[in-house]
Design a protein around this nucleic acid. Sequence first.
DNA 1: TTGCGCTGAGAACGTTCGTTCTCTACTGTA
DNA 2: TACAGTAGAGAACGAACGTTCTCAGCGCAA
Lengths: 187, 187
Amino acid sequence: MIDDETARDRVVRTADELFYTRGVQAVGMDAVRTAAGVPLKRIYTLFASKDELIVAVLRHRMSIWDAGLAGATERATTARERILAIFDFLDAWFREPDFRGCGFVNAFGELGAESHGVTEAVREQKATFQEYVARLVEEAGAPAHVAPQIAILAEGAQTTAAISGTPEAARQARAAAETLLDASGAN
Amino acid sequence: MIDDETARDRVVRTADELFYTRGVQAVGMDAVRTAAGVPLKRIYTLFASKDELIVAVLRHRMSIWDAGLAGATERATTARERILAIFDFLDAWFREPDFRGCGFVNAFGELGAESHGVTEAVREQKATFQEYVARLVEEAGAPAHVAPQIAILAEGAQTTAAISGTPEAARQARAAAETLLDASGAN
DNA sequence: TTGCGCTGAGAACGTTCGTTCTCTACTGTA
DNA sequence: TACAGTAGAGAACGAACGTTCTCAGCGCAA
C-alpha cells in the first residue's frame, strides 16, 4: 500500500489548499479524495471525521506559518528589525495571487461556533504568535504593553489586505509599528 | 397578508441573528423560515436566492453598525475623542456575551471566494469605515497616513477579541491609537 | 352566494453532503 | 498453486440542503 505518512501528508496538504482557496464547507470530502488521489476509505482511517481533518489541516498550516515567520525574521540583526520584518513577511504574503486572508481567522469565522477543535487550534495559533511578538518586543527593550498592540496591527493588516484585495495594509501597519516602538523608547 | 415591509424586516433581522451566531452556511433556509415565522414561498418572493438574502442581511448589519458607531462617537466633543470613542464602542461590543467577531469578516472568510455579492458588500462596509476614520483624523488635524493605521487597529482588535474570547484588545488598540495620534502631532 | 386570486403551511424535489459498504484485485506465505 | 488478508475504486446510504410545488382556506369584486 502507499506509505501511510505520505498519504496522510498528501491529504492534509491538498485539503489545506482546497479549504483555504474555496472555504472549508464549500469543499466536500469527495473533492479532497479526488485532488489528493487517496481513497475515501483510507482518508477515514486516517481521520475519524471531516472535523478531525480540518483540525489537522489547521495544525499543518500553523507549522508552515511558524516556519515562514521565523525564516523571515531571523535574517534581521536587531530585535527591532525582526519585529518590522513581520510586516515585510506579511507584505510578501499579501502579494501572492491567491492570498485570501488568514486561514485561521477564516476557519474560525466559518466553524468556530460549531467546532470546538477548530476554536482551540485557532486560539493556539494566535497565542503562539502573540508570544513570539512579546519575546521580540522584550528583546527590543520596549515595554510589554507594546507587544499586543503590534500583534493587533498584524492581525488587522491581514484582514484589511484580504478584503481590500491590496497589499498596502502591510506597509501602513509597519509604519504604525515603527511609531509605537519609537514612542515607547525601545532600542 | 402580513405587511410586506415587516415580513421582509423580520426575515432579515432573524437571518442576521442566526447567520452571525452559527455561521451562514450552518443555517438553512428552513431555520430562517421557522425562526422568522414567514413561509418559505414568501421568503423566495422577497429574495431570489439565499445569496440575495445574505447580501440583504449584510446591508442591514451595515446600517446597524454605522448607526451604532455614529451614536457612540457623536457624544465626544473633539475629533480626537471621537476617534478614541471608536475603541470604547468596540470595547462595549466585545463584552456582549454573543460577540463572535466582525460579521462581515466572518461572511467574507466563509463566502467571499464563492459569492461576488458578499465580497462587494463587505468591501463596501470596510471602505465606509475607513472613510469615516479618515474624516475624523483630518478633523483632528493629524496627517492622513494615520487614518488607515487606526482603521487597521480597529480591525485587528475585532479579530483578536473574537478569537481570544476576551475584550482587552479594545483597550490595547485604543492605547496604540492614542500613541499614533500623539506622535503625529494631532490637536 | 359564487368564483377568482392569492395566501400560508409545509410536503416534495433534485442535489450534495459526510460517511459507510461492496466488491474486485493484489500481496505475501506455505 | 492455493489462500487469507487487506487495499483501492467507487457505488450507495441517510440526512440536510436550496428551491419549488401542492393545496386547503381566506378576502373580495360582482
